[in-house]
């Protein structure tokens, strides 16, 4: 029999570590000058929370105080976090200084 009842329920992939992927990439890190900063907050908005899974470089994580933190050394400069939090203004996003940041060999 055809199975049409489970529509919408796809199996989840096993947890994947993004670090293993980023390690292939080349970066020129602008030490001490992160190009993305999170504004101080007591409780993250839904959008900011979403970045803990949505950021393709896994830059965002939740600390033990329930706040979202960012370590942007592995950032691939896609801009997703800026777009998603544009309304709440919780993320201050700039391009890295000229020459710094990710360097795609293939793109």
């Amino acid at each position: 029999m055809m199975n049409t009842t489970e529509v919408g329920a796809a199996p989840k992939a096993p947890p994947v570590k993004v670090e293993e992927r980023l390690f292939q990439n080349r970066y020129l890190v602008d030490a001490g000058r992160p190009h993305i900063k999170i504004k101080p907050h007591a409780e993250p908005s839904k959008a900011l929370m979403a970045l803990t899974h949505l950021c393709p470089a896994g830059c965002y994580s939740l600390n033990d105080k329930g706040q979202v933190e960012a370590v942007v050394d592995g950032c691939v400069e896609c801009g997703t976090c800026r777009v998603l939090t544009a309304k709440t203004g919780e993320v201050e996003w700039n391009y890295p200084r000229g020459g710094f940041g990710v360097l795609f060999k293939f793109g």
């Binding site: 989840k12 992939a13 994947v16 993004v18 292939q24 949505l54 393709p56 896994g58 691939v76 060999k105």
Partner: peptide
Amino acid sequence: TPYGLLEAFKRHPSVRPLLEGSECKEYA
């Protein structure tokens, strides 16, 4: 997660044989 979704795509039985034995050199 975007990388989880990509991993699942890569593991699809129709896709996996196409990539078998390959070396990933960049993630963007």
